[in-house]
Amino acid sequence: MMGACFECLVEIDGMPSRQSCLVTVQDGMRIHSQEGARDLPPLSDLNPVENAHGR
């Protein structure tokens, strides 16, 4: 649960390439498995609380 390996990538609520080991499951989430990395959405679409880089 360090988020260092990127082997747990999933799509969460339509947002691809999320690291499932770093996201707390909440009721109503739509989670789909994913093979390999995909392009991330623009940073403006990310929740700033979940954006670890603070950009």
Rank of each mutant, 00 (worst) to 15 (best):
M1K: 09
M1I: 11
M1H: 10
M2H: 15
G3W: 01
A4T: 03
A4N: 02
A4S: 08
F6H: 13
F6M: 12
F6V: 12
E7L: 15
C8N: 03
C8Q: 15
L9S: 02
E11G: 00
E11S: 00
E11T: 15
E11A: 00
I12F: 00
I12A: 01
D13A: 09
D13K: 12
G14N: 06
G14E: 08
M15C: 04
M15I: 10
M15D: 15
P16G: 15
P16L: 04
P16Y: 12
S17G: 13
S17W: 05
S17V: 11
S20G: 07
C21Y: 10
L22K: 09
V23L: 14
V23K: 01
V23F: 05
T24G: 04
V25E: 06
Q26V: 03
Q26A: 11
Q26Y: 01
D27L: 14
D27A: 04
D27M: 04
G28T: 05
M29I: 04
M29R: 07
R30W: 03
R30P: 01
R30Q: 06
I31V: 03
I31S: 10
I31R: 06
H32R: 08
H32M: 03
H32F: 10
H32I: 05
H32V: 07
H32A: 13
S33Q: 11
S33P: 03
Q34D: 14
Q34R: 07
E35M: 14
E35V: 09
G36A: 06
A37C: 15
R38C: 02
R38F: 04
R38P: 12
D39N: 07
D39W: 08
D39Q: 14
P41Q: 12
P41L: 13
P41N: 09
P42A: 15
P42Y: 13
L43E: 09
L43P: 06
S44K: 15
D45K: 01
D45S: 07
L46T: 00
L46Q: 08
N47G: 03
N47S: 09
N47C: 13
P48F: 04
V49T: 07
E50C: 01
E50T: 02
E50P: 00
N51V: 01
A52H: 06
A52W: 12
H53M: 10
G54E: 15
G54S: 15
R55N: 07
